[in-house]
């Protein structure tokens, strides 16, 4: 398992990185933490001609809190967030999700932008960002734009980030004082891809008031169902479980060696109930 030959570039700023992307088009692949890309190259499932290492791009770094938003530079590593003393008070849902993301060694290298860009169906952060109504800032030759997380994750490993664009930062609203946050996922071993998971926020968990919930690990992209969220208003956690299972009927859910689609539908109800009950 050795990657095929590739060229390597390490641009010093965003302009240079975007220029390289424009020059090489689909033959180029931006390299962030490499925790998914490098194995895929070694498996020869990905064979970019050139890797554009984003490590030195200053514009992609940094963790800044403004009054009601945190700007997380795309190259921020999971470890940087975990080590940020204000994380729990500022972004409690992110703090809840981080320990479930793989293992220490992977969190030492993996980046927030990388996770958002890859859009792995089982990834925690895309779901978290949908619940928090974060905005993803992408930059291209034409300048930068912001995309709402609800519109960003478009398909199986597909996002609204264009082929010649880069994710610069994720802008995450800080925790609202009147909302509570919950997170639960089910994996047979700690750190594995979840068979089902949910991230959520609400004004009140049980009975439910004003729920925002995104399920991950069950479909191609994080699942948010506004109709379901509305229907759950006023229900208890227990009642919500059955409502979730019913609402997911007919949706195209993932099936693999770990869980069938039926199992994922069933577990989705369980994780929502457990997340609510734990809040």
């Amino acid at each position: 398992m050795k990657a095929p030959d590739f060229a390597y570039a390490r641009p010093a700023d965003l302009g240079a990185a975007l220029a390289l992307l424009a020059e090489h088009g689909t033959e180029a692949q931006p390299l962030a933490g490499g925790q998914s890309l490098m194995p895929m190259m070694n498996f020869r499932l990905a064979a970019p001609e050139i890797l554009i290492d984003l490590s030195d791009v200053a514009e992609l770094r940094g963790l800044e809190r403004t009054r009601d938003t945190v700007r997380i530079g795309a190259m921020t590593r999971y470890r940087d967030l975990e080590d940020w003393p204000d994380l729990g008070g500022t972004l409690p849902l992110v703090a809840m999700a981080l320990p479930h993301i793989a293992h220490d060694a992977i969190r030492n290298r993996g980046t927030i932008g990388g996770s958002i860009a890859l859009c792995d169906p089982a990834a925690e952060l895309p779901a978290v960002m949908r619940v928090l109504a974060a905005e993803i800032e992408v930059a291209g030759a034409e300048g930068s734009r912001r995309v709402a997380a609800d519109d960003f994750f478009t398909g199986f490993y597909e996002t609204a980030c264009g082929e010649e664009e880069l994710i610069v930062a994720i802008h995450v609203p800080v925790a609202e004082a009147d909302r509570v946050y919950g997170f639960h996922e089910l994996a047979q071993r700690h750190g594995d891809y979840a068979m089902a998971g949910v991230a959520l926020s609400a004004l009140s968990p049980n009975p439910i008031r004003s729920l925002r919930a995104a399920f991950f690990g069950i479909a191609a992209t994080p699942v948010r169902l506004p109709d379901l969220e509305a229907a759950l208003e006023g229900l208890t956690a227990c009642e919500a479980q059955a409502a979730v299972t019913a609402a997911l009927e007919g949706l195209d859910l993932l099936a693999d060696t770990k869980a069938s689609a039926d199992m994922r539908r069933h577990l989705s109800g369980v994780v929502l109930k457990r997340a609510l009950e734990a809040m």
């Binding site: 498996f43 071993r189 693999d256």
Partner: peptide
């Protein structure tokens, strides 16, 4: 742990992400 095959005889569990070895935490 299980080595699972599909109906064509393709091994579905050929990586450490798909083939679950017991880990210390559990």
């Amino acid at each position: 742990e299980e080595c699972l095959y599909d109906e064509e005889g393709q091994l579905l569990t050929a990586t450490m992400a798909d083939y679950l070895v017991p880990m210390a935490a559990e």
